[in-house]
């Protein structure tokens, strides 16, 4: 997977120089297959093998690994949600999982007052650095969160879900696809090539 050096640095302020970092990771964790300058940033191509895909195929995950092998402090951002406590999600949305074996857990949330448009420049740049194409702020944020946390997610247009019984159906994760990424890979542990 491709990682943005600047992005990693946000989580590990003491991160070593790109070349040193590549050497540190190669000797202590993963083979670094590429380290290229791209504008103000460096793109590291890090080969994460299947045993560590679950926790290291994301920037926070990789930052955690770097902090661990290098003895640096990890600094992740806190966030808070603005929720309207008087509204009940059950009135808006239900989720039906037809095969619990293939999808043990699926969570959804309704976000309101969204204006579709372009993502901020810095976010677009990060997506491009990691090999993704910016589409719009909705699609981009799902991809951004995936690259950040390793959790794949998908945005549905609430207005276009069936109105009478608003329901996001998951029959078999293999069947659900979106224009952004394939859902099945989420649950099986995504091989890195799918993210490139």
């Amino acid at each position: 997977m491709k990682y943005s050096y600047n992005w990693l640095k946000e989580y590990v302020p003491q991160i070593p120089e790109p070349k040193k970092l590549a050497e540190l990771l190669t000797m202590r964790a993963f083979e670094v297959e590429g380290c290229e300058k791209s504008g103000n940033d460096f793109i590291l191509d890090i080969k994460v093998l299947p045993n560590r895909a679950f926790d290291c195929l994301s920037h926070i995950g990789m930052a955690r690994e770097i902090a661990a092998v290098g003895g640096y402090r990890l600094q992740t951002t806190d966030y808070s949600l603005i929720e309207n406590k008087s509204l009940k999600i059950k009135d808006f949305l239900s989720v039906e999982v037809q095969d619990k074996e293939l999808c043990p857990r699926y969570s959804a949330r309704v976000v309101v007052d969204i204006k579709v448009g372009e993502s901020p420049k810095w976010l677009q740049e990060r997506l491009i650095a990691c090999g993704l194409r910016p589409i719009n702020n909705i699609v981009d944020i799902t991809n951004y969160v995936m690259l950040e946390t390793g959790q794949p997610l998908h945005a549905f247009d609430f207005d276009k879900l069936e109105a009478e019984n608003p329901k996001s159906e998951i029959r078999n994760p293999k069947k659900i696809t979106s224009s952004q990424f394939l859902v099945p890979k989420i649950f099986g542990g995504a091989p890195e090539k799918e993210n490139e």
């Binding site: 000797m27 202590r28 993963f30 083979e31 093998l49 299947p50 045993n51 560590r52």
Partner: peptide
């Protein structure tokens, strides 16, 4: 030796 992964060894190295 460098860390690596093979399912049939633990730990694994290159």
């Amino acid at each position: 030796l460098r860390p690596s992964y093979f399912p049939f060894t633990e730990p694994s190295f290159e």
